[in-house]
């Protein structure tokens, strides 16, 4: 089988998943969720008002037709307008998703690089004091609540020391940079602990392999064993893991964006929740799921290219 057939076959496999996502979302919102028109207008709304709103949302159709509407929107990429802002959802998502990406991508790269280096150090000194200390520090970093990080860092670095902007955003390069510095640092702190532990486990898995013993028996130094033989093998799971994380960069961090008033996708979602904006939540959920499925596919393809053992 060549790569093309493989990709085609994997694409076909994603179809039941995408239908599954649509069904699940439909089940949650249209069946369990009750009547959104009632939620939106409150319990004192007049019957006529409710009826017209229901018509406007397409809720007066049968459940089957509503389901077809949902499936159609997936393939046409048309999720309609937000109830709250009355703007086209896709346009708003593109704009805010890009802002989220510019906020989360640099910390993502920095956190990766830092945690791989630290994990290498930890793996080099495995079982020794430095390794144990690094593991303990990463567990500590993982155990602090995200909200505590945000509040503490904002209060200390922005409020007390006045090093960064307290909150806010300004569109356009390079104005926005000063606003994303502190949120970026917080994102690094949030992810680095679990990253270090993950990469350390991956590296140690490799270090215990037979071919590493062979490399040592050749007379290679521990440093070149680690950087050549261990790292090249470990890069396969590491790169795979990194690619699966990419879609989440567009989604951004809900709390951080909302807290620092950065108009990214995360903030957009929080607003939608606070205003009971069903179509937006539905659209974001479905779209992010689809992006995730596609990135998974991409990961598998890259995996087959990276690992010479994988035969198609």
């Amino acid at each position: 089988m060549d790569l093309k057939t493989y990709i085609l076959r994997r694409l076909l496999h994603t179809i039941p998943i995408i239908i599954g996502i649509a069904t699940l979302i439909f089940f949650i919102f249209n069946i369990v969720g009750g009547d959104p028109a009632l939620t939106l207008l409150g319990k004192y709304a007049k019957a006529k008002q409710i009826a017209s709103l229901r018509h406007e949302m397409g809720l007066d159709k049968s459940l089957f037709l509503q389901y077809i509407d949902l499936l159609k929107s997936i393939f046409t990429f048309d999720f309609g307008k937000s109830w709250h802002t009355k703007q086209n959802i896709i346009t708003s998502l593109k704009e805010s998703g890009w802002i989220s990406f510019t906020l989360s991508f640099p910390p993502f790269i920095i956190s990766c690089a830092l945690s791989i280096i630290i994990a290498m150090v930890s793996a080099f000194y495995r079982g020794q004091f430095l390794d144990k200390t690094l593991v303990l520090i990463s567990i500590i970093l993982m155990s602090i609540s995200i909200l505590s990080y945000i509040l503490l860092f904002q209060w200390f670095f922005a409020f007390k020391l006045d090093w960064f902007e307290i909150a806010g955003y300004d569109k356009g390069f390079p104005n926005f940079i000063s606003y994303i510095l502190l949120p970026g640092i917080i994102i690094i702190f949030l992810s680095i602990g679990s990253d270090i532990r993950l990469y350390r486990t991956i590296l140690l898995d490799e270090i215990n392999q037979d071919y590493i013993r062979t490399a040592r028996a050749k007379g290679l130094s521990e440093v070149s064993v680690l950087f050549k033989h261990v790292l090249k093998n470990a890069m396969i799971p590491i790169v795979t893991n990194l690619i699966t994380q990419l879609p989440f960069l567009f989604l951004g961090s809900l709390l951080i964006e909302n807290f620092f008033a950065i108009p990214g996708l995360g903030n957009f979602i929080v607003t939608a929740i606070n205003t009971s904006d069903f179509p937006v939540i539905k659209a974001v959920t479905i779209l992010s799921a689809i992006v995730f499925v596609l990135f998974n596919l991409l990961t598998d393809i890259i995996y087959t290219i990276l690992d010479p053992r994988v035969k198609l």
């Binding site: 037979d210 071919y211 013993r213 062979t214 028996a217 090249k232 093998n233 690992d307 053992r309």
Partner: peptide
């Protein structure tokens, strides 16, 4: 001094 090992299947590095 050289050494060869029991497990030929796993003693060579798969990515080189």
């Amino acid at each position: 001094i050289s050494m060869i090992f029991q497990e030929p299947m796993t003693s060579l590095n798969p990515v080189f």
